[in-house]
């Protein structure tokens, strides 16, 4: 026991440097995470909180809105992440052969929407999607197409949000992919070209496989952030029309801060975490294997 205290005393400076951050982390991050799991088993009221076991989860499973939200969140992610990555890959491949200044110019151009907030992007696109006066319907009318309700139609609302996210996003992805491309040794390409590969073939069979660790990282990060989509929904559709754009995080917000049902909302949070965790695991399985060069 004495040896234990001696060890702690010997390391005292390490704990001194760690303490402020660790204290904040425990109180305002890790503690709340655990508390959230606990809350999901409670019927939480200000004056009468009681343990209800799995009741909150049972109610979720019986709630059609929850399943809609889960489905929409999946569809949104499945729409956004692959398109996003495809766009970034193509742009990175096109940018890469050019000299530094041109690369920098295009990277900046694609990055700029990335520093404008989700609130601003949402407001702009609310205006662009506006059915009578918006830019998008005007452009459609110029080529003779009829007006579309975009966010107001159950068939197009979610697709509109995906479209917006794909057009505005991808800036940081492009930067990371070009950086990873730069670290691929040139002799691999020389070998491919000597063997008679075309540029497209070299890209598909040399570049893309070697980018796998970067792509895996980007898929996992993109999935996590797409699963958390909230601001766009809050400002543009509030989950409507008829729950067509209801997502998990918006449902958490709605359940907790509009209906003040903290227990069920916490259960939703736990489900969100489990879904994200499962997705990340599957992605590591399928895309994970080590790449050496």
């Amino acid at each position: 026991m004495a040896a234990f205290w001696q060890r702690l005393w010997k390391d005292r400076w390490a704990y001194f440097f760690l303490a402020p951050s660790l204290l904040l982390f425990l109180v305002f991050f890790l503690g709340p995470v655990l508390w959230s799991a606990y809350l999901s088993f409670l019927d939480y009221q200000v004056f009468s909180t009681r343990w209800v076991g799995l009741e909150n989860y049972r109610r979720l499973a019986a709630d059609p809105v929850f399943w809609l939200a889960l489905r929409n969140t999946f569809l949104y992610t499945l729409g956004v992440v692959p398109l996003w990555l495809l766009k970034a890959l193509i742009v990175a491949a096109l940018i890469f052969p050019f000299a530094r200044p041109i690369q920098t110019f295009f990277k900046s151009a694609f990055y700029l929407p990335h520093v404008t907030s989700a609130v601003i992007i949402s407001l702009i696109w609310l205006w662009i999607f506006n059915p009578p006066f918006g830019l998008l319907n005007y452009l459609l009318s110029m080529v003779g197409l009829p007006k579309v309700a975009w966010l107001g139609d159950t068939r197009t609302a979610l697709a509109s949000l995906i479209l917006m996210q794909v057009i505005m996003g991808g800036g940081s992805t492009i930067v990371m992919i070009t950086a990873a491309m730069g670290s691929i040794p040139a002799h691999l390409f020389e070998a491919a070209y000597l063997d008679g590969a075309t540029r497209v073939q070299a890209f598909l069979w040399v570049t893309v496989p070697l980018l796998r660790p970067t792509l895996l990282y980007l898929v996992v990060m993109g999935t996590i952030s797409s699963f958390q989509v909230f601001t766009n929904i809050y400002l543009m559709t509030e989950g409507g029309p008829q729950f067509a754009t209801m997502t998990i995080v918006y449902l958490i917000y709605d359940t907790a801060f509009k209906q003040f049902q903290f227990g069920p909302a916490s259960a939703l949070g736990v489900v969100l975490f489990l879904v994200i965790f499962a997705f990340a695991l599957v992605q590591y399985r399928f895309l994970g294997s080590e790449v050496e060069y």
């Binding site: 982390f25 305002f28 991050f29 890790l30 503690g31 709340p32 995470v33 508390w35 959230s36 809350l39 996590i224 699963f227 958390q228 909230f230 995080v249 958490i252 917000y253 907790a256 801060f257 903290f262 909302a265 916490s266 949070g269 736990v270 969100l272 975490f273 994200i276 965790f277 990340a280």
Partner: peptide, 20 residues
């Protein structure tokens, strides 16, 4: 612990933090 918690979406802590 620090690394693991980077996987946890911030919305999970939303309600406990609000109560806190």
């Amino acid at each position: 612990l620090y690394i693991g918690s980077m996987m946890v979406p911030a919305q999970v802590t939303l309600i406990p933090l609000y109560i806190l």
